[in-house]
Amino acid sequence: MLKPVNILMVGVGGQGTILASKVLAAAAQAVGYDIKVSEIHGMAQRGGSVVTQVRLGEKVYSPLISEGEADVILAFEELEALRWLSYLKPGGKLIINNQQISPVPVLAGAAEYPQNIIAQIQARGINVQVLQALDMAIACGNAKSANVVLLGALAKNSPIEEKIWKDALAATIPPNLLEVNNAAFTAGFTAGTAGR
C-alpha cells in the first residue's frame, strides 16, 4: 500500500518549480504512485508566485491540497514559504531555500520585504530545514540548478529511493545539463535530513 503524500512546491517565476514537479512526478510514477499535479502561475514571468501542488497515493482523485494538509512544503524562496505556511499539516516538514527575491510591490517601494522570516517560522516549532540552495548550485557549476538541490533534499525525505530519482532526473533534464544537475541533486540529498 502506497502511503498518500501531499507536496506543495512554492517559489517565483524562473526558479524551476515546474521542472522540479515534473521530476517528482516521474519518480513517483516509476514506483507505482497515482499522481495528480496542479500548477498555479501568478504573473510567473515577472517574478510572481508559482505554486505546484503534487498529490501521490494508491488512487488520487483531486490535485488540490487544502490548508493544513501538506506533508511537505518545498519553498524555493523565503517569502513564499511564509505565504503558504498555513498549508503545512501539523508535524509536516518545511524545506526552505534561504534566498530572498523581492516581489513587484517591494521593488516598486510600495511594501517592505519581511525581516527574519526563517527565525519567525522556526519560532513556531515547525520542522524546518534551511538550505543555501543557490550557493550550493553555484558550487556545482550552475546557479539555475538550485531547484534540483532542493529536489535532492525532498528526495531524502521521501519513500522513493535515490536511484529512481536520478533516473527521473535523467529522463527530464537535457543531456548537456545532466552532469551539473546530478551534482546539484547529490548535494541536496546529502544535506537533506530525513524526518525530524
Rank of each mutant, 00 (worst) to 15 (best):
Ser158Asp: 05
Leu134Asn: 14
Thr193Cys: 08
Leu88Met: 03
Val23His: 09
Leu64Ala: 12
Thr190Ile: 13
Ile118Asp: 03
Gln29Val: 11
Gln120Met: 11
Ala123Glu: 12
Pro114Ile: 01
Ile126Gly: 09
Ala146Gly: 02
Ile126Asp: 10
Asn157Gly: 05
Pro159Met: 01
Asn98Lys: 13
Ile73Gln: 11
Leu107Thr: 12
Ile138Leu: 08
Asn97Leu: 00
Pro63Asp: 05
Met1Asn: 10
Leu24Pro: 01
Asn98Ser: 14
Pro103Ile: 02
Glu77His: 10
Gly92Leu: 08
Leu177Ala: 15
Glu161Leu: 09
Thr186Ile: 14
Ala119Trp: 00
Val31Pro: 09
Ser145Cys: 14
Met9Trp: 04
Leu177Lys: 14
Val5Glu: 13
Leu24Arg: 04
Glu77Asn: 05
Tyr113Cys: 00
Ser38Arg: 10
Val50Arg: 06
Val54Thr: 15
Val180Trp: 07
Val31Tyr: 09
Thr172Ala: 08
Thr193Ile: 15
Gln29Asp: 13
Lys22Asp: 13
Leu19Trp: 00
Gln53Pro: 02
Ala27Tyr: 00
Leu85Gly: 06
Ala70Pro: 04
Lys36His: 08
Arg83Ser: 07
Gly125Ile: 05
Gln29Tyr: 14
Asn97Ile: 01
Gln100Gly: 05
Tyr113Gln: 03
Ser38Val: 05
Val148Phe: 00
Ile7Gln: 04
Ala137Leu: 03
Asn176Leu: 15
Glu112Gly: 06
Ile101Asp: 09
Arg196Val: 11
Ala168Ser: 14
Glu77Ser: 11
Ala25Phe: 04
Leu82Trp: 12
Lys22Ala: 13
Gly192Gln: 04
Gly32Glu: 05
Ile7Lys: 08
Arg83Phe: 03
Ala168Asp: 09
Asp34Phe: 01
Glu112Asn: 13
Asp167Thr: 13
Phe189Ser: 01
Ser21Arg: 04
Asn127Trp: 10
Gly109Trp: 01
Ile160Val: 14
Val72Gln: 00
Gln99Asn: 10
Thr17Tyr: 07
Ile101Trp: 10
Ser49Pro: 06
Tyr87Asn: 02
Asn147Ser: 13
Val5Trp: 10
Leu178Asp: 03
Arg124Lys: 15
Trp84Glu: 11
Leu134His: 12
Leu74Asn: 10
Leu24Trp: 00
Gln122Phe: 02
Lys89Gly: 01
Glu58Val: 12
Leu82Ala: 15
Lys59Ile: 11
Asn147Cys: 02
Leu131Arg: 05
Asp167Asn: 14
Gln120Ser: 15
Pro175Gln: 12
Ser102Trp: 13
Leu2Phe: 02
Gln99Arg: 12
Tyr113Lys: 04
Gln122Glu: 14
Pro174Asn: 07
Met43Glu: 09
Leu2Ile: 11
Lys3Met: 12
Ala26Glu: 14
Arg124Asp: 00
Gly57Leu: 01
Leu107Ile: 15
Asp34Met: 07
Trp165Ala: 10
Leu8Pro: 00
Thr52Cys: 14
Met136Glu: 13
Lys144Pro: 06
Gln45Trp: 05
Ala20Gln: 06
Pro174Ser: 08
Ala143Arg: 14
Ala70Thr: 08
Ala30Cys: 04
Gly48Tyr: 08
Leu8Glu: 01
Lys166Ala: 12
Met43His: 05
Pro63Arg: 11
Leu131Tyr: 02
Val149Pro: 02
Ile121Asp: 03
Asn182Arg: 12
Leu24Tyr: 04
Val37Ala: 05
